[in-house]
Every structure is written in structure tokens, then in C-alpha cells.
């Protein structure tokens, strides 16, 4: 059992972190992701979004199952009857079952977020490979170095941040101190925007994302989105190796 947990933790720690946090109009998802096609962030239902780190094939099958669960419940009852809590419970059961019954546990960590009519009704659930569910308040960080990232995010996080500032806080948290920020093309950003009609999930990319980034860039950060400057710092490859210390899972 302990070996299995160790194995899963090492697998998860290899990937880069993903930040999920509340902002003024809903919930923001930010993931450094060099791939345009293989998403770490996805829509599940009208109000529910999904973010994951770890093995792609494993969290992808969880994502598809979540969409099936949501669509079948929404079709059987009503669209309002699909809840993030129900989905988090489903994932928890599946993850827990695989952790105890299978030879290998899933090497994933996921977030299920549901946007409500007001900020108080927003919900962010973080689920780990063994099926534990954490009801997070305001923000959640998953993936390698999640503690360091969460620490940096806590310093800047306030309830009700405007979108631009929230995005900036997330990027500061995801960037190692002194490191270079991921260029726009290597960011996967999405929101659950409570002001939208029906389907609240929206991906932010291209010119709109660039505008958000430039409008919110604070003065002290020197040239945040110029990857060609400072050749030795360029790091555009996919995350294949640990970005920092491996989380050995040895903390109590």
C-alpha cells in the first residue's frame, strides 16, 4: 500500500502544477501546457469544470466518465440537478476503489470545481490518487511542487480579485522565484464565468488572453512574456522531468 502511494506521488510530482482559484466572476483555471490538443482543463457540465495532472490517459478516462455521469443525470432529471459534489463523490469512489483493489493506483490528482450564483456558492474539490476529497476554500493547487506554488499563491490571493489580477497571481505562483513565465502559447487558461448564459465554461486563448496578460502585468516584473530574451533560460519543452524536488510523500 505504501509503495503504491509512493509510486503515485512520484508520478504526479513529475508534472507541472495547475492552479484553480476563485475570482470576482467565478473560477479561474490556469495550467502551463505546451500542447494545444491534450487538455488538462475541461468542461464537464454547465457549471462544472475539471482540471487534472498526472498521467494523461488516466485522467482522460476520468474526464470522459465525468461527462457521461453529468449528461446522463442532466438528461434523466434536470440540468440543475447535476452537482459538483455528486461528481466529486463519483471520482472519489472510483479512485479509492482502484487504489485499494488494483495493482497500480492511478497517478492523477484532480480538481472538480462548480461555479454558483454567488461567490459563497462556489465549490472547489481536490481529489488525490487514493480517493481522498478535500473541500478547498478559494483556491486549489495540484501537481508537482504544489506546496511551493500554493504558498506563493496564498501571498497574493484575495477574495473577489478581478480576472486580470487573478490570472497574474496564478502565473506568479506558477513561476519559480527568479524564473521565467510560460509564454502565452504554452498556457491553458479557462474560466467558469457565472455571468455567462447556461454553459459557464469558457477557454481563454489567443488575443483575448494576451490582452488580459498585458493589462494586468505589474510594473516590477521585467518583460514577462518574451521567451526569446535570455537564451539560457528558455525552457519550452514539455514537462518530462521533475521541475524541482520530488515530493517523496514522506511527510506525516
Amino acid at each position: 500500500m505504501r509503495d503504491r502511494a509512493e509510486y503515485a506521488r512520484k508520478g504526479i510530482a513529475r508534472g507541472r502544477s495547475v492552479v484553480v482559484m476563485q475570482y470576482a466572476d467565478g473560477i479561474l483555471f490556469v495550467a502551463p501546457n505546451p500542447s494545444k490538443a491534450l487538455h488538462k482543463i475541461s468542461e464537464i457540465y454547465d457549471r462544472i469544470g475539471f482540471a487534472a495532472v498526472g498521467r494523461y490517459n488516466e485522467f482522460e478516462s476520468l474526464r470522459l466518465a465525468g461527462i457521461r455521469y453529468a449528461d446522463i443525470n442532466g438528461y434523466t432529471y434536470n440540468r440543475n440537478d447535476v452537482t459538483g459534489r455528486g461528481l466529486a463523490n463519483l471520482y472519489a469512489q472510483q479512485l479509492g476503489m482502484i487504489f485499494t483493489d488494483s495493482i497500480k493506483s492511478l497517478e492523477v490528482e484532480i480538481v472538480v470545481a462548480e461555479v454558483g450564483d454567488s461567490a459563497e456558492e462556489d465549490q472547489i474539490y481536490r481529489l488525490t490518487f487514493d480517493g481522498s476529497v478535500f473541500d478547498e476554500q478559494g483556491m486549489a493547487v495540484i501537481g508537482g511542487q504544489s506546496e511551493a506554488v500554493a504558498g506563493r499563491l496564498k501571498e497574493r490571493y484575495r477574495p473577489g480579485l478581478p480576472l486580470g489580477e487573478a490570472l497574474d497571481a496564478a502565473l506568479v505562483a506558477l513561476t519559480e522565484p527568479g524564473g521565467e513565465r510560460s509564454p502565452v502559447g504554452q498556457l491553458e487558461v479557462a474560466v467558469l464565468d457565472r455571468t455567462r448564459e447556461q454553459r459557464k465554461f469558457q477557454r481563454l486563448a489567443g488575443p483575448r488572453l494576451e490582452r488580459l496578460l498585458t493589462s494586468s502585468t505589474p510594473a516590477p516584473a521585467p518583460e514577462p512574456t518574451l521567451p526569446e530574451k535570455g537564451a539560457p533560460e528558455v525552457d519550452t519543452g514539455p514537462p518530462t522531468a521533475p521541475d524541482g524536488d520530488i515530493d517523496t510523500g514522506s511527510e506525516p
Binding site: 478516462s61 470522459l64 466518465a65 457521461r68 446522463i72 438528461y75 434523466t76
Partner: peptide, 25 residues
Amino acid sequence: MNNLFTNTGSSSFSGFLGEHAPDLL
């Protein structure tokens, strides 16, 4: 419930419904 995780055949919802809960069609 297991169907939710194992069905990977196609992306059709009505196809899935036919297997998972045919009485809802």
C-alpha cells in the same frame, strides 16, 4: 455505474444511453 468508466466505444450520448439506461430513450 461501472459503465461510466469503462465505456470508451464512441462519443454518442444516445448510444451510451442505449447500453446504460435504455428505458430513458
